[in-house]
């Protein structure tokens, strides 16, 4: 049972920011993660600020400057949006494999990139490092789902599918706070545990995501996203790959490779990108890219399989471009 809290529904961005500034205030977009966190005691809320009645925060606007997606846009809407499906396929695919149909109808893009970790220790009331405690229980415990890259102090994996796709597509997060608006390149939006293991994003208290901007897609750009989980649906990624490639005459002119489910932040693999860039997608090139992708992986006791899995996922994804 959730502890009692006040529920408010502001009708403008300014009012929302005013209310969010208070101590113990939490933002409520789709609520699919918030309600779970409150129920599981991951954190408490004195006041839940619903954005539901704030105008202008929902919907997809396409222009020559690219595409702007309101933070409150449901994932299901993104998954079936024709422009996103054609020009930013990775995002449409990522949105379409989040959770279940119910969760995609209710969950929003802003919420999806700001969700709290799904590490079962973090969720189940263990006083872990991400909660300000002294140890990461995954190190000595069950770590089959944990990070093979970037696990420093905390070994959780970033749970968002869309975050990996947005990183591959070079998105910009537009955040608003009482101090005003700031545009944050997605690569700077997520916080690695080496910097601070108690937060996942650079958002300050009282600040919220307003919208996400995708740059214009080049004509020759193609992108994709795929994840593998325990189940065929309703599962977070054990390993996933968001890729965006520009192909000229059968050659990879430019490549972006970003992994989900393997690191505490969306994990961009420059090594894999380099192995692809300037080359034709032969089995050898793909193989080299897969090997490069897992270089430097530091598996824990139960998750060495993720090294092979990640290679398998990337290989299958690359074959889509051939």
């Amino acid at each position: 049972m959730i502890k009692s809290f006040a529920y408010v529904r502001p009708t403008s961005v300014d009012d929302a920011l005013e209310m969010l500034g208070a101590d113990g205030a939490r933002v409520h977009a789709g609520g699919t993660d918030l309600m779970g966190c409150l129920r599981d005691g991951v954190f408490e809320a004195e006041r839940v600020v619903s954005l539901r009645d704030v105008p202008g925060m929902r919907g997809v606007r396409a222009s020559t400057q690219g595409v702007t997606i309101g933070a409150l846009t449901p994932l299901a809407e993104i998954a079936r949006h024709s422009v996103i499906g054609e020009q930013y396929t990775a995002l449409a695919r990522a949105a379409s494999v989040v959770g279940t149909p119910q969760l995609r109808s209710q969950g929003t893009l802003g919420g999806n990139i700001c969700q709290r970790p799904r590490c079962p220790y973090f969720r189940a009331g263990f006083d872990c490092r991400r909660k300000g405690g002294r140890i990461c229980y995954a190190v000595g415990g069950d770590n089959h789902g944990h990070a093979i890259f970037g696990g420093v102090r905390c070994h959780m994996v970033h749970p968002s599918d869309t975050a990996a796709a947005l990183t591959a597509l070079d998105a910009t997060v537009v955040a608003v706070g009482r101090a005003g608006e700031r545009r944050i390149p997605i690569g700077d939006f997520f916080v690695a545990p080496s910097v601070d293991p108690t937060r996942e994003t650079v958002l300050e208290h009282g600040e919220m995501v307003k919208e996400i901007v995708l740059p214009p897609a080049a004509d020759d750009q193609r992108s994709s996203y795929h994840k593998e989980g325990h189940r065929r649906t309703w599962d977070f990624a054990l390993a996933g790959a968001a890729t965006a490639l520009r192909m000229t005459g059968g050659n990879v002119a430019e490549a972006r490779v970003v992994f989900s489910g393997v690191a505490p932040v969306p994990w961009r693999s420059m090594a894999a990108e380099e192995a692809l860039q300037g080359n034709t997608l032969t089995p050898e090139v793909i193989g080299r890219a897969c090997d490069a992708a897992v270089e430097g992986a530091a598996p824990m006791r139960h998750n060495a399989y993720k090294v092979g899995l990640l290679k398998g996922v990337l290989e299958k994804e690359m074959l889509r471009y051939v």
Binding site: R123, A124, F126, G141
Partner: peptide, 12 residues
């Protein structure tokens, strides 16, 4: 949580 806390990991 074998060998650490003995508690159930994952509550839902």
């Amino acid at each position: 949580d074998r060998g650490q806390t003995g508690r159930l990991v994952g509550h839902g």
